[in-house]
């Protein structure tokens, strides 16, 4: 759900490419299978464009909305180092939104149109950001464990086929390594701190675990549509594979701190080499995606408010000769 293609399992392969010029389609697919990137003005199937816009746009929205749960603690971060680092981290997320909107723009959707779709609720963003950051430790857990998930997703997508998205993700991934280090450091500091601090971080971890398990989305249904998007290198890894990779990398690090995770079934299965876990509550996931999470309404109201407060500013600076064209790359 972070930046994943939306797949309708019932759609048939031939309907997906219906009406496309077979010669051009073959050329396009050959380019991708050679490992070459697609650039903005290249010919591309309609479905490719549509899925990429949807995916990159959702990713961009996730960054700008993602600035809000952590932003909750920006005025209260304890001490200079944390205050500076949190400001820089939230700033980076705003920067990521800027980079990703720019990449999506190259496919022909304006930033205005994307923002409009965000604030009216027409377009989605990552579900995790609909959960509240109750305490300082929640902001630390987000910085470590949500960004860790984002990195797995982004590293996979950076190997995709669309040039501008890959370039944006390369830049983003470099910054994410700071987020991860900062987040880990902040969590470790609390976990090795006073009993009060340790309890605070354990509580936050317990709160965030269900949304973390939701982060990569439900198991992919195998469909012709999925196969095509994988062939086109729009979808780069299955949701389950990413979740497994995540558990493999981070559960040991969490346990290493003596913290507990609220899932009695969570363990590495020695036979399969994979992690067993209690199936996340996908009904709740759907409910939250469809607007009924603890913070959905607030997040969108805040974005609308920010856009509205900025409107006179943007209007004042606009000149008569302003003429937007689609950015180049």
């Amino acid at each position: 759900m972070y930046g994943n293609a939306y797949i309708d399992p019932n759609e048939k392969a031939n309907s997906i490419v219906a009406g496309e010029d077979p010669e051009k389609l073959a050329e396009f697919e050959a380019r991708i299978s050679k490992g070459e990137k697609i650039e903005p003005k290249d010919w591309m199937p309609k479905e490719y464009r549509k899925q990429l816009i949807r995916m990159i746009e959702q990713h961009a929205h996730s960054e700008i909305i993602g600035a809000l749960p952590e932003g909750t603690w920006i005025t209260r971060a304890p001490g200079f180092q944390r205050k500076l680092a949190l400001m820089a981290k939230v700033q980076d997320e705003v920067g990521h939104a800027q980079l990703l909107y720019s990449a999506a723009e190259t496919l022909g959707k304006s930033r205005e149109a994307m923002i409009n779709d965000l604030i009216t609720g027409k377009s989605k963003y990552s579900n995790v950001f609909n959960y509240p950051a109750f305490e300082w430790a929640d902001a630390c857990i987000i910085a470590w464990l949500i960004d860790a998930g984002a990195i797995i997703n982004q590293v996979a997508n950076a190997k995709g086929s669309y040039g501008p998205y890959c370039r944006a993700l390369d830049r983003i991934c470099t910054e994410e390594s700071f987020h991860l280090k900062y987040g880990h450091d902040a969590v470790v500091t609390l976990a090795t701190g006073t009993p009060y601090q340790r309890k605070m971080v354990q509580d936050a971890l317990t709160r965030w675990w269900p949304p973390i398990m939701h982060f990569f989305g439900p198991s992919d249904k195998i469909s012709q549509h999925t196969e095509i998007l994988m062939k086109w290198k729009v979808k780069m890894a299955s949701n389950d594979d990413m979740r497994q990779q995540y558990l493999n990398m981070y559960v040991p690090k969490i346990w290493d701190l003596g913290l507990t995770l609220p899932d009695p079934n969570l363990k590495k299965n020695e036979e399969t080499g994979k992690w067993d876990y209690t199936e996340p509550d996908w009904e709740e996931f759907k409910r939250v995606i469809n607007g009924d999470g603890p913070c959905n309404a607030e997040r969108l109201a805040v974005r609308r408010n920010a856009e509205e407060r900025g409107r006179w500013v943007r209007e004042a600076l606009k000149t008569a000769d302003t003429k937007y064209i689609v950015p180049l790359a």
């Binding site: 720019s102 304006s110 009216t120 607030e298 109201a301 408010n305 856009e307 606009k318 950015p327």
Partner: peptide
């Protein structure tokens, strides 16, 4: 009434609605 004191201070209506951003609202590139 937000967990983020900045948001609470901004006195935002939960069901606020705004006019859509117009063309060139975000200037040019």
């Amino acid at each position: 009434k937000s967990l983020d004191p900045r948001i609470t201070r901004a006195e935002i209506e939960l069901n606020n609605s705004i006019a859509p951003l117009e063309e060139n609202d975000q200037w040019e590139t």
